[in-house]
Amino acid sequence: MMIETTNYYRWRKFKNRFFQFLLIMAAIAVLTPILLIVQYTFVKGAGSLNLDFFTNLPKPVGEVGGGMRHAILGTLYLVAIGAAIAVPIGIMAGIYLAEFDKKSALSRILSFAIDLLTGVPSIIVGIFAYILLVVPMKSFNAMAGGVALSIIILPIVTRATEEILKLVPDHIREAGLALGIPRWKVIFMIVVPGSFKGIFTGVMLAISRAAGETAPLLFTAFGNMYMSYRIDQPMASLPVQIYNYAISPFEDWQRQAWGGAFVLIIIVLGINLTSRAIINRNELINFFSELKKKLNSKKA
């Protein structure tokens, strides 16, 4: 047999090994900072949490203690406004794109607009909301923050709805129509509820994304240091509060920024992972049973 032991063959083997080494190095290069970020946020963040953090408002500058109750509630409030505006509109727009007027000029322009919104940097979204609501009301206000978040949520929900409805096979629609039910009812009462799980996941992903946004809130909801429920007044939010504390010179505020980051990451990743788990439930179950089998066979 022609066993090659030439230098060129050795060179090929070396290149192969070196390449695999590079891949492993790349993996380490990516995973290390991520582990560091997670570790830092968890250790520093969890360490600076206490009951006060959740139940108290900020203390005056210079005094130690106080919490972020107003910011946590503010974030929930702002995200709720954003979702209340964007989720129904987004789902309807998704239904329109998936079910009606395929390839008409209107649906093409809408599709383009949604693409455009998806790609707009979030800071520009802030400017949009500022022009729309802060300029006319002459004050930073919670409504503007909510609208800004709704502009973040809208395209994600629309695309998710559209993609999921496109997966529904046509024979389901035809079956409905064959029963003598009008088309709109077939869609709203058979097709859409049948895809509820998928649409719900899209909505949750969009909301988790919006909950972590800082840039669109900086000059819309702006932030404050006390509890406020007024929609026409500035409102605090977790990300903006973290930002303000992070760049402040006070050590206690910096500590609280880490606490805030920890809470924020738990909220955002929590929603994100839960909704992914919902959509991939079956896959997840398979995965774990396979893993169990593997571990068992290793033991045996």
Binding site: M1, M2, I3, E4, Y9, R12, K13
Partner: peptide
């Protein structure tokens, strides 16, 4: 066995086997 040598022996590189 390819020409009398077992290709599944430990020291055999599959790259060389496939070339043949």
């Amino acid at each position: 066995n390819l020409l009398g040598k077992n290709i599944y022996e430990k020291d055999v590189d599959p790259v060389l086997i496939r070339r043949n």
